[in-house]
Amino acid sequence: MYSETRAAQMAAFMLQLHGGRMPYLKLIKLMYLAERKAMELWGESITGDSFVAMRHGPVLSQTYDLIKAGSRYPVEKGWEYYVKDEANHEVSLARAVDEDDFADLSLSETDILESIFSEFGAKDQWQLVDYTHDGNCPEWRDPDGSSLPIRPQDIFMALTNDMKKTTKLTDRYRENLQLKEQKRKIL
């Protein structure tokens, strides 16, 4: 289940590491790589977003929509609370942030964000596009001007190259989503 709040905190964390501003294409690539790392380590997504292949590589679908158009149904402390649109296809922090602003992210999740930023933060958005296209994210397929869904099992298969492990990880991923949905309904 998608969490705009967690996506916004994740984006704000990355923006803070980058000095408060960056091209949105770079941000969405860093966020995808962090989600992919979480899937590799835990078999779970940080934001609950769905994944799509687009011309410039894989992206987080609902987060991409937030970057492009903002929130249709704003949530308290959601996207606009943390991130604002800037000129020249850039985004920036909407306000000063501190560690309390990342309360919905676990220490392990912020460790992933720091690790991804450490590895890829110095690259520009086009180097990240090339990285995702050059076989480093084999779950991405050229959508030929459109977009194509990337299923969790596609990511797991790309990470493990083992059908048995992929099936187990996909089943666990779906079970976790169902548990989160049931918990949300109870609350």
Rank of each mutant, 00 (worst) to 15 (best):
E4D: 03
A7F: 05
Q9G: 01
A12D: 08
L17S: 12
H18A: 14
G19F: 03
R21Y: 00
M22L: 08
P23R: 08
L27P: 08
L27G: 03
I28K: 07
M31C: 10
L33S: 01
L33V: 02
R36G: 03
R36I: 02
K37Y: 12
K37I: 11
E40G: 10
S45N: 05
S45I: 03
I46E: 03
T47M: 01
D49N: 06
D49I: 04
S50E: 13
V52D: 08
R55N: 12
G57F: 04
P58K: 04
V59M: 06
V59G: 13
V59K: 13
L60Q: 10
T63M: 08
Y64N: 11
L66C: 03
I67R: 07
K68V: 12
G70I: 06
Y73I: 09
V75T: 13
V75I: 12
E76A: 09
E76H: 11
E76F: 11
W79C: 00
Y81V: 04
V83D: 02
V83E: 03
V83C: 02
V83L: 01
V83G: 03
V83M: 02
D85P: 00
E86G: 01
E86P: 00
A87N: 09
A87V: 10
A87K: 13
H89C: 04
H89S: 13
E90K: 07
V91C: 07
V97T: 08
D98L: 00
E99K: 11
D100E: 15
D100Y: 14
D101P: 00
L105Y: 05
L105I: 04
S106N: 04
S108I: 13
I112M: 02
F117N: 14
F117P: 03
F117E: 07
E119F: 11
F120C: 02
G121I: 07
G121S: 05
K123E: 07
K123Q: 10
K123A: 09
W126M: 11
Q127D: 15
V129A: 05
V129H: 06
V129L: 03
D130N: 14
P138R: 01
R141V: 12
D142R: 10
D144P: 05
G145A: 02
G145I: 06
P149W: 06
P152K: 02
Q153H: 15
D154F: 07
F156S: 01
A158H: 07
L159W: 11
N161Y: 13
N161V: 11
D162F: 06
D162A: 00
M163Y: 05
K165Q: 15
K165A: 14
T166S: 02
T167G: 13
T167Y: 15
K168E: 14
K168N: 09
L169W: 14
D171I: 11
R172Q: 09
R174E: 15
E175T: 12
E175G: 01
Q178Y: 15
K180M: 02
E181F: 10
Q182G: 08
Q182I: 12
Q182S: 11
Q182E: 14
R184G: 00
R184I: 00
K185C: 08
I186M: 12
